[in-house]
Simulated assay, not measured.
Amino acid sequence: MTDSKEIKLYATHPHPCSYFGDREAQTIFIDPDMSPSRLLYSELSRRGFRRSGNHIYRPDCKRCKECIASRVPVMTFEASRSQRRTINRNADLSTEVLSAPSAQAYPLYERYINGRHRDGDMFPPSREQFDSFLGESSATTAYVHFYAEAALVAVAVTDILDDGLSAIYTFYDPDLNKRSLGVYGILWQISHAKSLNLPYVYLGYWIRDCQKMAYKTDYRPIELLINSRWVRLN
Rank of each mutant, 00 (worst) to 15 (best):
I113R: 02
R38S: 11
Y202P: 01
V231D: 05
I160V: 13
R58W: 01
R116A: 05
I68N: 00
A103C: 09
Y106R: 05
A103D: 15
A25W: 00
G21T: 10
M34F: 09
S138H: 08
C64D: 00
D22Y: 08
R229V: 11
N54W: 06
A148I: 07
A154C: 14
I113C: 05
R220V: 10
T76G: 13
Y184P: 02
S42A: 07
M122F: 00
I28M: 05
E110W: 03
L108E: 03
S132M: 12
Y200I: 06
S166H: 05
H145I: 15
D159Q: 10
D22G: 08
I168G: 01
L224H: 02
C67A: 07
N88H: 14
G21K: 08
E6N: 14
A139T: 11
V157T: 10
C64V: 01
V144A: 11
I160A: 11
A139L: 12
I168W: 01
N88V: 12
R84D: 04
H192F: 15
S45F: 01
Q104C: 14
I222N: 04
L161N: 03
A167I: 06
N177T: 14
R71I: 10
H13P: 01
P32W: 06
S35Q: 14
Y106A: 06
V72S: 03
A142D: 12
S166C: 12
I222H: 05
D209S: 12
D121C: 01
I113M: 07
L165T: 03
E110Y: 05
R89L: 12
Y143F: 14
Y57G: 00
S80M: 10
P101F: 06
D22V: 05
R50V: 02
Q104T: 14
P107E: 08
R179F: 08
M213P: 03
P199F: 08
S195W: 08
G185I: 07
Y184T: 07
D131A: 14
D218S: 14
S94T: 15
D162N: 15
T140K: 04
V157G: 06
L233V: 14
A139K: 13
G115M: 08
M75V: 14
G115W: 03
T140A: 11
I190P: 01
Y112M: 04
T170K: 10
P14D: 04
K216T: 06
L98N: 14
S132G: 13
L98P: 03
S52P: 02
T158H: 05
S18P: 09
F123P: 00
T2Y: 07
N227A: 13
V153N: 07
Q83M: 10
R47Y: 06
L152A: 13
E78W: 07
Q189W: 06
L198R: 13
D218Y: 13
A142S: 13
L44C: 04
M75F: 15
A156I: 09
Y41G: 04
Y143M: 09
V157F: 07
C17E: 02
M122L: 09
S191T: 13
L181F: 09
D159P: 08
M75S: 13
P107W: 11
S166D: 06
F29D: 00
R118T: 02
L152S: 07
W188K: 08
P221Y: 11
R116F: 04
L9D: 00
V74R: 04
F133C: 15
L233E: 13
Y57P: 00
S102T: 14
I226T: 09
N88I: 11
G53H: 04
R71Q: 09
S18K: 10
